[in-house]
């Protein structure tokens, strides 16, 4: 999917109290999100410092034409935000505006009451229903891709400095999303002396908990997530993750072994 929106990044977290002081910028009812409309151009300000501009129903090319005329309004808004005591280069932020990538993230402030509380039944149904309508191989690949997308994103969000911090980020993510309780152990890799092998244990996994024995591991999404996170952080592709324990295999928790293998 392609986002038909433009995005500007201020590069810092914004305080809702300060945003509410800016004239013309309205807080969306019930959310921690601020909006401004200029004609049919809508501008949204997110607490993570992201500003989105779009015109409902218009494509990115049509939007670009609108922005040629209304771009100055965005610069004015940036100036207003800056006046609230934030240090950034307005011109730079405006210049670096670009077509937004489609995102599956749930930015802070857009689900104020429910946050990232997950409906385990719904999640499971979405994952397993793929098996009803497409070949098993494809269905599994779909889960791996979802996991990988999340895993790579974790590196951007948590900015870990080493692989232990990366593993901690995975633990934290599972906790925040309420999709499992993760613990991990490390071991030295005898073959690759400068690399560690990680064993992740997932209790109360949202994907597998309670499923009957199927004699194969089913948490492709978690496998993809761990692999994606390490690939992104290490800037490598030769990372292998194997699910060694799973409800699907008759275990009551899931376990994953991660190692970097020689090219």
């Amino acid at each position: 999917m392609q986002a038909q929106a433009y995005v500007y990044h201020i590069g810092m977290h914004l305080d809702p109290k300060k945003l509410s002081k800016i004239s013309g910028l309205k807080k969306v009812d019930g959310l921690e999100l601020f909006e401004k409309s200029i004609g049919n151009l809508r501008i949204q300000v997110f607490l993570n410092g992201e500003i989105r501009a779009f015109v409902p129903g218009k494509t990115i090319n049509e939007l670009k034409e609108v922005l040629i005329v209304s771009g100055v309004k965005i610069v004015e808004l940036l100036e207003e935000i800056k006046k609230q005591g934030y240090k950034f280069d307005v011109e730079e932020v405006f210049k670096n505006g670009h077509q937004m990538d489609f995102t599956y993230e749930t930015p802070e402030g857009t689900r104020v009451k429910l946050k990232n509380e997950v409906a385990a039944d719904l999640l499971k149904e979405l994952i397993y229903s793929a098996h009803d309508i497409m070949p098993e191989f494809q269905a599994e690949r779909n889960s791996v891709q979802a996991g990988e997308n999340i895993g790579r994103r974790l590196v951007r969000i948590y900015k870990p400095k080493n692989t232990d911090e990366l593993a901690d980020a995975i633990v934290k993510y599972f906790k925040e999303q309420k999709i499992g309780i993760v613990t991990y152990k490390t071991k030295k890799d005898e073959k690759e002396s400068n690399m560690k092998m990680y064993t992740f244990r997932v209790d109360e996994c949202a994907v597998a908990s309670g499923i009957p024995l199927v004699n194969k591991p089913v948490c492709h999404i978690t496998r993809g997530l761990i692999r994606g996170a390490f690939c992104q952080f290490l800037e490598l592709e030769n990372v292998a993750v194997k699910e060694t324990k799973c409800w699907g295999l008759g275990d009551t928790y899931c376990e994953f072994l991660m190692k970097v293998f020689p090219k």
Partner: peptide, 24 residues
């Protein structure tokens, strides 16, 4: 890119192929 797969493990082979094709 030239690479190999440890122990010729199908899952890793496919995971890697998927990354290279969709991401790279």
């Amino acid at each position: 890119v030239i690479t190999t797969v440890d122990k010729f493990d199908w899952d890793t082979l496919t995971d890697m192929l998927q990354s290279y094709v969709t991401r790279h």
